[in-house]
Simulated assay, not measured.
Amino acid sequence: MSIGPSTFARLRRIAEHLPELPGVGKVEIAHGGIVLTLPPVRRHELAVARIARQLHLQLPKTHPGFLARAGADLQDAGLGRLRRPDLMVFAEAAPESEPPAVLPHEVLLVVEIVSRSNPENDYHDKVADYAAMGIPHYLLVDPRDGTGIVHSQPNYRSRTPFAFGDRIIVGPWTIDTGDLLTYG
């Protein structure tokens, strides 16, 4: 469901103030409303850090001037979406411009670590959103069962499943999933 620009702008203004509430993790806009998530658990954050570390080692060779960063907003006003992926690869200069959120055409990769509370969001809604935004690669990591999927454009028709312990290819990068942990 897409929403009009004025509705998106109003929701965006509201969303900017919600992280101040105790117990709120991510604040996103999707399906015409604001979506709040719980703060992530330790193993979730550990997976983000370990994947980011591997990407940081490879980015100077594959994409100088790009970084892997957690906690940045991804905005597509045309789709009426504000997402906050667990990790994104984008040009270091991207956040210097307006709007403050990263725009889809600036992003090479999004990474989501599946949460226990709402896995459907990562497996369905975000697959559709990131594909519609034209983001080349979407790495979905599922610590619930130690698996994942590498999605690649066009429209994420290319889907490569993996299990923790595999070395996977995500675009020009190689990720060793051997040090990722299940929720247990």
Rank of each mutant, 00 (worst) to 15 (best):
D125T: 15
I51C: 03
A131P: 02
Y123V: 03
P99S: 05
G33R: 05
E106S: 09
A131R: 04
A15R: 02
L57P: 10
T62E: 15
Y138F: 10
K61F: 11
G23A: 06
E92D: 15
R81Q: 09
H105E: 15
L21Q: 10
V27L: 08
H44G: 04
P40H: 07
E92V: 13
M133A: 05
P100Q: 15
D86A: 06
A94T: 06
P39T: 01
V141M: 05
L79I: 04
E20H: 09
F8V: 09
L21D: 02
L74P: 11
P64A: 08
G80R: 08
N121V: 08
K26R: 14
A132S: 14
V114H: 07
G33L: 01
I113L: 01
L74R: 14
A52W: 03
Y130V: 06
V24M: 00
D129S: 11
H44Y: 06
R69H: 12
G71N: 10
L82W: 06
E16C: 06
L11S: 00
P22M: 08
A132W: 10
A93D: 15
A52Q: 09
P104Q: 06
I34A: 06
Y130Q: 03
L21R: 13
L87H: 11
V141D: 08
G33D: 07
P119A: 06
S97M: 11
A9P: 10
H137R: 10
H31M: 13
E20T: 13
A101G: 09
D76Y: 06
G80W: 03
Y130I: 02
A47M: 05
P64H: 07
A128C: 09
A49Y: 13
R50L: 11
R53L: 09
E120K: 12
L108V: 03
M88A: 14
V141N: 07
